[in-house]
Write a protein that binds this DNA or RNA. Structure first.
Lengths: 348, 348
DNA sequence: TTGTATGCGTTATCAA
DNA sequence: TTGATAACGCATACAA
């Protein structure tokens, strides 16, 4: 005999079967009542519900998922769950999904592309109804292959993946934000502007570089290629890159940091070198966090509504879960420049 | 030619049945091979695996869960997923659970106690194999009732719940940390020390108050009750409480903030009042975040290893998932005082 | 070592 | 409107 024990009188799980017996009706009727099927009489409904509460019956969502073919579950693969920014994305998404009755499963790739692929497979095996992915590497073939095999809808979170044309995408206007930041600095008289940002293979980086370049080009010049550093999103990279650039013969007079984590590294180096933002060097970073607001002086920021961005991702996904034929969509969240005291006119 | 789509020919799912047919063996043999059952011949293994890869078979974890009675899934209810601290707890837990083959489902109560209860029920219905909970309210009867009905093991995360004696608990030595922080301030000559911390109904708050009180009592005095403010963990409360206290006739000369979020509020008020920590007022906060490290001046912190705390929670849970008879355990993570420039000797 | 057969708890189809 | 019954895909007791 296959043995399973949960609750219930004799050690086996309390199921609809017992409820049906108690109410003196058929198993199928219990199911209908519990699923609000239209064709149930009031007397049937009350008899069943009485039995349900007497026995303290609890539905088994696993069995339900198997039978229905849908798990009411959505996966979200993020690159770094401990980054408060990702935490806010996931909060926005989770709130929206909850409202629709979906449970979000959050997974962390730790910026490892192999992990992306693994997780995509695991989610497929778990039969999620949809997937939101902020890939560690938007080109990695294994990951793309795994995602292509997924029949559930996909939303790419701030990533480009031409090989996944069936996916919806949510992004932020990084190019516009950095364009405004660069214009702001150029207007203040800075010409040696450094930009330190993430991996060059990721959309946010590509967009930021584009915005940076556009600002210079609009003035008939080219951006200083020696002052552009792409690499990764972590503090250590920000720290090293800042150090490097400031030790040059002609150091930058302004720095643009491409993320909150990079900002931590940039500030570590500046503090170590006793350079004060807003006085000795101009500083702009991306995404508003307490550190930026409460730093002395407060730091100028390219801001976006992170909670909302998560919510939009969830909406795009739900749209396609509900309507299989809905075409993939692209949504972009706007950015805005919050000018604070870390940027100042250069005096030559 | 391996079929690339996991849907079978007729649109229905590709199952072990097809694999068995393709390999010319019984359905059960496929299952045995895939589950590494000891009694399988090498020839059987290779035949089955060949068919599996030819057909691109993918297991259905939902069906497997139903049959096995275990979902290889663990729930984690946190009060505020967007707080970087909780994000780190969950990262530590997820990493540990992953290693053991479990998938973590993170849920956010937003510090709403009704949400705790709802989520506990949902997780029960989803048949999670275990649950880690950082309750919004450790007394709320509905939540306690829901948790009591869960037959899967529970780990309380930095919470006390005497009504749940079957649960393991992981906590941090908040009392010791605050005791050291208070001693530090008293040694520096401060006597009007304010403490602003979370809800008085939660363990961390209770422990902090205890540590605060102990420090004074060890010196034969009592802590200044008018300077203790408990309330909530958010920045708004920190901002208001700080404001209140500083506008009194005899304001504190030092402030202890009970969380990273409260710190944000405290600093907002101090900045607004142009009071500089480390010069005009001494400041200690709990949990090291970039803001504390990179603030000017850097802020003295009661530190704990958050990632590790998450990992320990996962370990306690796995211990009881694997051995049903294992007794509940209590683990405590140590805290340490990181003395920085925000604390200084008072000059009267 | 392998095959046969059953049931996990639910939903959906079909008659009644 | 209700009831009987057949899947959903898999893992296991048992027979061979």
């Amino acid at each position: 005999m296959p043995q399973t024990n949960r609750q219930g009188r004799n050690g086996s799980e309390l199921t609809m079967r017992e409820v049906a017996e108690r109410a003196g009706v058929a198993l199928s009727s219990v199911s209908r009542v519990l699923n609000n099927h239209p064709d149930v009489s009031n007397s049937m409904r009350s008899r069943v519900l009485a039995a349900v509460s007497e026995l303290n019956y609890e539905p088994n969502l696993i069995a339900s998922s198997l039978r229905r073919g849908s798990t009411m579950t959505v996966g979200f693969i993020v690159a770094d769950i401990s980054n408060p920014l990702f935490a806010e994305f996931s909060k926005g998404a989770a709130t929206e999904l909850d409202l629709a009755g979906y449970t979000m499963v959050l997974a962390n790739s730790e910026f490892k592309r192999e992990r992306d692929a693994q997780l995509a497979r695991l989610f497929r095996w778990r039969r999620v109804d949809g997937l939101i992915v902020s890939l560690a590497d938007q080109e990695y073939p294994e990951t793309i292959a795994e995602l292509q095999r997924l029949e559930a809808p996909i939303v790419l979170f701030d990533r480009d993946a031409p090989k996944l044309p069936q996916a919806s995408t949510v992004t932020a206007d990084h190019a516009g934000g950095i364009r405004r930041a660069t214009d702001h600095l150029l207007d203040l008289g800075h010409s040696r502007i450094a930009m330190i940002t993430g991996p060059s293979s990721l959309r946010p980086t590509q967009e930021r570089v584009r915005g940076f370049s556009n600002a210079y080009r609009a003035r008939g010049s080219r951006y200083p290629a020696d002052l552009l550093r792409t690499g990764s999103f972590d503090a250590a990279f920000g720290e090293a890159a800042t150090s490097d650039m400031l030790l040059r013969q002609s150091p930058p007079t302004a720095i643009i940091s491409g993320s909150n984590q990079l900002l931590v590294g940039v500030l570590r180096t500046l503090h170590r070198m006793s350079l004060r933002p807003g006085r000795d060097i101009a500083l702009v970073s991306c995404d508003d966090v307490p550190l930026a607001e409460l730093h002395h002086p407060p730091i100028t920021i390219v801001h976006r509504d992170t909670i909302n961005m998560g919510a939009v991702a969830a909406q795009l996904l739900l749209e396609r879960i509900r309507d299989v034929d809905a075409p993939p969509r692209l949504a972009s969240v706007r950015t805005e420049l919050l000018v604070r005291d870390s940027t100042f006119p250069i005096t030559t």
